[in-house]
Design a protein around this nucleic acid. Structure first.
Lengths: 333, 333
DNA sequence: ATGAAAGCGCTAACAG
DNA sequence: CTGTTAGCGCTTTCAT
């Protein structure tokens, strides 16, 4: 029983003009005489009129709303990835006056493209087909954090390969040779690239890969703990440095190491990934690889907006990752 | 240039029936003969038809989408409050097939109620007027984490007063008398209630309030750090226990304490608030007060859904907080 | 049980 | 620069 609020016709009547003219000032068309524009604007104010988005969408075909699709995969919530992304995207949408539809999806259902004028995919995990169908339906789309090979969509990703290499090179530069990697979930491209970067960096410096030194996880702290324990359990063969695929896992590794009576960085050096602010504090501030999450979100919205406005070519942006040196690494003894 | 997809008319033609009948089966009206329903359903499948939400909304007045309004106040992002809430709400919306519109708002703009059939406010911070106008416009609404006094809206909050009391009583039970409180941002009701609970618990046991023991913050780790330093700077008068308004601040306090060469819990006991999983690890696992964030989100969606479906009475739910005892507290010496 | 027709509130040609 | 008119794709009386 919501009170029926003013419609465009009421405004037109009050202003003594046609609804077309009202529509024109609403849509900021240039072809309205100044005095009439004023009249309309006043009528709008008096009536507290605001156009029905549904009618606008139906008549004009513009929705002004975009969707953010986040795969409802546990791991995506382990880091602060999701929140930072939402924050970046949400803030920019607010500024651009875009409505943001949020889908935490299992990936099975297909999105109803009729509702939105564009879609941002926060990574692709089990929902590649949603991306594909968006492309097929020619809905403007951009994928975040996944340098989409074989898919013709715009994307904005972070250079995980380079980031990982820098991390490992830094460790090698410190004299480490026994470098382990607690990897993320191989279901994510980011984790795969970080692992690949780790391998390439090792290889480039002629250090042989040790299978015992590579442990794959689901990004959870629980699995990080087990990984760290396994690594320490190698005893004499235990690594002197560990490159961990996320800061929250790195923090867990640090905790395990301390529990076992070892020290970071004196006994074992640690490099994380994310630049999660909570890694600044704690027993030792973490050396890590910074991922510009908020920026990725913003870039994605910007690109999507351009696509919606008619931009044709897709663009694949690869943002650089940056090694942030703090206190969790040391020259090997 | 999106290819025009099938409309209800196409379906009607293919099925050899009227669009009215098609509309009926879409809306699961009972008055359709079984064989005709089958025909329509098949046509729908063949044409991959899905109704235009905008047209539906315009014609029928039902949107199927709700809004989640999150005040874009820094502090709300410091804890994992926002993410957990989004997670709970988003997941349930997915299950209920509701579209979720997310607004990270400064609180100044008024929401366009025509777009949604209901609104969830994730706390009220600088945007009380948005809540008020929703009420005025009779848009179904529910407020989270704010036991809205003076506002006739449904709400689902957590019992911060009781939670804080339990925390402090626990500390008192351990023999502590010099108990400090690093409070949250007084702009939030939660912080005010936690402070109030702290005071009441002290008072009930006849412990006099010490102004030096109460430090208000903005929930940030930076301010938590300064608060902890100030508290430790009291030297002989320093507290033997600190009740901290959030886990992330509590973690920071622990860090400061260790830096100063003191131990937790041997020298100082700490109780946090949130049950943030990251407080499980680290140097000492944190005793804390659990806040059922995801549940709050789910309850909010459920209540909103009922309101949308015609439920008249508003309901104010107060979820209990639960003290989780772990390792950061000890009997005073 | 089914269909014809009248809107829902707006935008977009097309005239003037 | 402004107004007239025809839809946008559905739901809903109201007949049949």
């Amino acid at each position: 029983m919501r009170t029926k609020s003013a419609g465009i016709e009421d405004v037109a009547r009050l202003a003594g003009l046609s609804i077309t003219t009202v529509s024109r000032v609403i849509n900021k068309a240039a072809t309205v005489r100044e005095d009439n524009r004023k009249k309309v604007e006043e009528a709008v104010r008096k009536l507290r009129f605001s156009p029905s988005p549904h009618a606008q969408a139906l008549a004009g075909g513009k929705t002004n709303t975009i969707a953010l699709v986040i795969p409802r995969y546990e791991g995506i919530f382990y880091s602060f990835y999701a929140l930072e992304l939402i924050r970046g995207i949400g803030t920019l949408c607010d500024a651009l006056r875009l409505n943001l539809l949020l889908y935490l999806t299992e990936g099975r259902d297909s999105l109803n493209g009729k509702l939105v004028s564009g879609i941002i995919f926060a990574d692709i995990i089990n929902n590649r087909f949603q991306v594909e169908s968006a492309i097929k339906e020619k809905i403007p789309a951009v994928v975040i954090n996944n340098f989409t090979e074989g898919l013709s969509v715009s994307c904005v990703a972070v250079d995980n390969l380079q980031g990982a290499k820098e991390a490992v090179n830094y460790l090698i530069g410190l004299g480490h040779k026994k470098i382990a990697h607690i990897a993320g979930d191989m279901i994510t491209q980011a984790a795969r690239f970080r692992l690949e970067g780790y391998k390439q960096a090792l290889c480039a410096r002629g250090i042989k890969e040790n299978p015992d030194y590579i442990i794959k996880t689901d990004y959870s702290r629980g699995q990080a703990r087990r990984a760290a324990e396994k690594l320490l359990g190698l005893n004499a063969d235990a690594p002197t440095a560990i490159f961990v695929a996320s800061d929250s896992m790195a923090l867990e590794a640090v905790a395990v190491i301390k529990e076992k009576g070892k020290r970071v960085p004196e006994d074992i050096s640690i490099v994380g990934f994310d630049d999660n602010p909570s890694a600044l504090y704690g027993p030792v501030s973490l050396t890590t690889v910074r991922q510009p999450l908020i920026k990725m979100g913003e870039e994605a919205v910007r690109e999507l907006n351009n696509l919606i406005k008619g931009k044709k070519e897709i663009t694949r942006a690869m943002l650089p990752a940056e090694l942030i040196v703090r206190d969790s690494c040391k020259v090997v003894q």
